[in-house]
């Protein structure tokens, strides 16, 4: 299949990331490149499907999953939504959990650039996917940024700050929602 070479290579990168902890800045731009939204927060991912994604500014929102339950908590509205976890959620970072088979099946994957930064371009094979392209940029084995293009021509750039991979241990309660205070 076209592009399956890229999928294997990307899967190799993803499998080498057992866990990833980083801050992030997210910048959403319209089709003319004008900034529509900027937000910051922190994230922790543990393969295959544990995630803590916290937006801290300018609004607050948390997406937490232990791979079975998905919690979405809105501190501004003090509102918690709990549902069974399914990987198709609004957090593109979950691509980190994809296997070579899934990548090949769901995307056309190409390694676009390869010197200092390895850039992978993923184009969904399904027409009704909610984005038209996802770019993953790695420096060495560490993910640096993701760029999502949607069908309105808008781009969402998620840049990881101080990304750390494969910490020996991660507290399990990171991936379970707890009402603090």
């Amino acid at each position: 299949q076209a592009g399956s070479g890229g999928a294997e290579q990307l899967a190799g990168y993803l499998q080498s990331v057992q866990n990833l902890k980083a801050g992030f800045t997210q910048t959403v731009r319209d089709d003319r490149g004008e900034i529509l939204e900027e937000s910051r927060g922190s994230m922790t991912f543990k393969r295959p499907d544990k995630l803590r994604w916290e937006v801290a500014e300018p609004y607050r929102y948390q997406v937490i999953t232990d791979g079975e339950t998905l919690w979405r908590y809105d501190p501004d509205f003090e509102e918690l939504v709990t549902e069974p976890f399914d990987r198709v959620s609004q957090t593109p970072i979950m691509i980190l959990a994809a296997s070579a088979e899934e990548l090949t099946a769901d995307y056309e994957v190409r390694l676009v650039a390869g010197t200092e930064v390895q850039r992978f371009s993923l184009k969904p094979r399904q027409a009704n996917a909610d984005f038209s392209e996802l770019e993953l940029n790695f420096k060495g084995e560490v993910l640096q940024s993701m760029l999502l293009r949607d069908k309105l021509g808008q781009t969402t750039l998620i840049e990881l700050t101080d990304p750390r991979i494969n910490a020996p241990t991660l507290p399990a309660e990171l991936f379970v929602f707890r009402q603090n205070s």
Partner: peptide, 13 residues
């Protein structure tokens, strides 16, 4: 009016 999902993505205008 630009509306986006809780994580800032999935915009409607």
């Amino acid at each position: 009016i630009r509306l986006s999902g809780p994580l800032g993505m999935g915009a409607a205008i």
